[in-house]
Design a protein around this nucleic acid. Structure first.
Lengths: 196, 196
DNA sequence: ATATTATGTGAATACTTATTCGCATGAGGT
DNA sequence: ACCTCATGCGAATAAGTATTCACATAATAT
């Protein structure tokens, strides 16, 4: 039998195991059995710590939201120049995708959007924060003269997010068949040329 | 009992019904029962015309590929100026999403990407064509002096595709709670300012 | 030490879904 | 007219999945 641990610890293990399942097999394959196998515990034990699948989805969304937003917020709050902040956020987001492919897959899953409205609303909120954070940096860049006054901060922030998303999608759909960092760098260089 | 029709006709009906299911409930809900209900026929009859679910997925991918690419190719082959072509492709893609939300949902579904590799490869091929078509238009725009020589055609094409995708995603995730055409227009105006 | 409570598990249970089977029926060729 | 076969359907079948249950065991409080 598995050694006993507190619910607090098990909850985290379960969330990470679930994220790994999504990274390897997608949201469709996120069954209680798969989570249990990935976490190395029995299916029944999952229910000792979560009331059901819905609660697991929600915990995953909270984990992802904190991870992504936490990183971005700490970069945004730093003292570097706006353009450098943007690049750091962009590349560290790509790094996060490489390390946890489950994150974009979960966030972009239509199963979540349509089948779990409350989780979707939470994600929408976090995405909104993310866009605002990036918008703020862009606005600062314009004020400081580092970026062209032609750019609209909010729309440009969305464009940047779109670049991240399309890269993640093509990488996933093509079975990770190209170097995502290299692709991302090319996109970034082009982007900088456009907004400067 | 349903009136009898040829397999050729039924196949098309089934594909359209399946696309409607995806548009309303997502890929997760694309069950044989749901398709049958949407098409107004029995589940067993689906199997008279398709060997199984996999074959239906493939037929859907072919249908979508033809629809999206056909439109883009015909616009690309027209005689308008490059920038105008780009805008037309962009807005007609958004229109397509509004009319058939099932299309982006199917194309971006991780279930398809991970669980049906051959369908995914086919989609990746079509997306590649799409990017090339847009790239070509951008390259022409640069040559004709309509677009800034600073832009890199392939990366800018991907950025445009990313804009479409992030807009579709935010629209879906937020339950179609904003005017997608209006959002798309704002993104486009900003984009034009950047690349011109 | 003992009692209590939290944590862990294999085995049911109830439900969904893809696919197959035996049989019905009607359209088109002869 | 009638034969044949493609098209259609209700009812199995088989496999997978979420959740619950009855019981086991280890940590913790008394």
């Amino acid at each position: 039998m598995l050694e006993k641990k507190s619910t607090r610890v098990r909850k985290e293990e379960i969330v990470l195991a679930a994220l790994e399942v999504v990274g390897n097999k997608g949201v469709r394959a996120l069954t209680i059995g798969a989570i249990a196998a990935s976490a190395g515990m029995s299916e029944a034990n999952i229910y000792r710590h979560f009331s059901g699948k819905e609660a697991i989805y929600f915990a995953m969304a909270e984990f992802i939201g904190s991870a992504v937003m936490g990183k971005a917020a700490s970069i945004a709050g730093g003292s570097r120049k706006p353009l450098e902040k943007l690049e750091t956020i962009f590349t560290s987001h790509i790094t996060l995708i490489v390390e946890h492919p489950g994150i974009p897959r979960f966030v972009f899953s239509d199963d979540i959007h349509l089948g779990h409205q409350d989780v979707a609303s939470y994600l929408a909120l976090r995405i909104g924060n993310y866009v605002e954070t990036i918008s703020g940096i862009i606005a600062a860049g314009i004020n400081e003269g580092e970026l062209s006054p032609k750019v609209s901060s909010r729309e440009t922030a969305l464009t940047l997010l779109g670049m991240i998303q399309i890269t993640a999608l093509r990488w996933t759909i093509g079975n990770a068949s190209f170097d995502i960092r290299c692709e991302a760098e090319k996109l970034w260089n082009n982007f900088v040329g456009l907004i400067r």
